[in-house]
Design a protein around this nucleic acid. Structure first.
Lengths: 159, 159
DNA sequence: ACTTTATTGTTGACATATCAACTAAACTGT
DNA sequence: ACAGTTTAGTTGATATGTCAACAATAAAGT
């Protein structure tokens, strides 16, 4: 059997820095830091909060479970995040008339103000990041991500 | 100002599913789940533990700070992870003769056994994932990730 | 020599993620 | 009408990530 000769040589001639899943992990982490700082400084909100606000939208109202589906966040996590956001006055909830189990969630005036301010900034940021890529890279990274996602969901490779 | 008309429409005509950083977040998360399950089932170790073992290598010995640099993990986190791994008998430490501050970390016999078993499996997994990509996509995703990483580290876009 | 600074690793505090148990309400099928 | 099942959301337990304070040692500057 062949064995990595030195720390972080994942394959005989492939240092860990060139292992795809590792790269995704690293870049994801840095993008996260970047987004969090950016949001913190421009709007004083957390990344998780921004995603939730984006799910709700400035006018609309949604429910917990819709948000969960949309941004694929754990419902427990969401419940706690929303609690914080209500305390901060970003969102408000009211019980649904027709289904006593669910709540309609919407932005408060303050939440809307922040949303309107933040959306174009986040768009600019996205343009800045994507602007670093060529057309080819841009297309390729999306289709590559799609394929990786499918492969990761595929149980074929899970014992 | 233009505003998303509906939940999760990040840009006028761009649903959140097509926002690059969001896609990276999602795919990363699924790859993480996949890797964790895979490691759990094949070797009974956690992803963080595998990364650490990979940093140490089967023969070599390293220090905390080297591992931190290598896999970019927090030193506090690493300290705790190693404590667990020592309890589980995967790694051992001994004080460095020349520098009383640092410890030399190496795999135990058991750790080596698991490492040797796991490395080829993880390579296979990587091949499986990367095998889903075309040559073009493969090249493009790496260069795209590099550029995104640079852009994210760039402070130009941080207020 | 000796004061200052930098590095190594541990620990505490706190935020975030993941998973599972639980209650209440709504739906389903008989 | 009503037993069984599903769905909505809350809460608890536990793991992981992030950040800062700290003690011990080493290295650098004077």
């Amino acid at each position: 059997m062949t064995i990595a000769k030195h720390p972080a040589e994942f394959d005989d001639d492939t240092p860990i820095q060139e292992v795809l899943t590792w790269r995704i992990h690293q870049v994801h982490s840095k993008l996260n830091v970047h987004a969090s700082k950016f949001l913190e400084r421009t709007s004083g909100i957390a990344l998780a909060q921004w995603r939730i606000m984006l799910s709700i939208g400035p006018e609309g109202s949604t429910t917990h479970s819709e948000i969960c589906r949309y941004i694929a966040v754990d419902k427990g996590q969401l419940s706690r995040s929303l609690k914080g956001m209500i305390e901060e006055g970003l969102v408000k909830t009211e019980n649904d008339e027709h289904d006593q189990r669910q709540q309609n969630i919407s932005l408060t005036r303050k939440g809307r103000r922040i949303f309107r301010k933040t959306l174009p900034l986040m768009r600019q940021r996205q343009s800045f990041l994507v602007g670093a890529l060529s057309k080819t890279e841009h297309k390729a990274i999306f289709s590559a991500l799609n394929k990786l996602e499918l492969a990761a969901e595929n149980h074929e490779f899970l014992p």
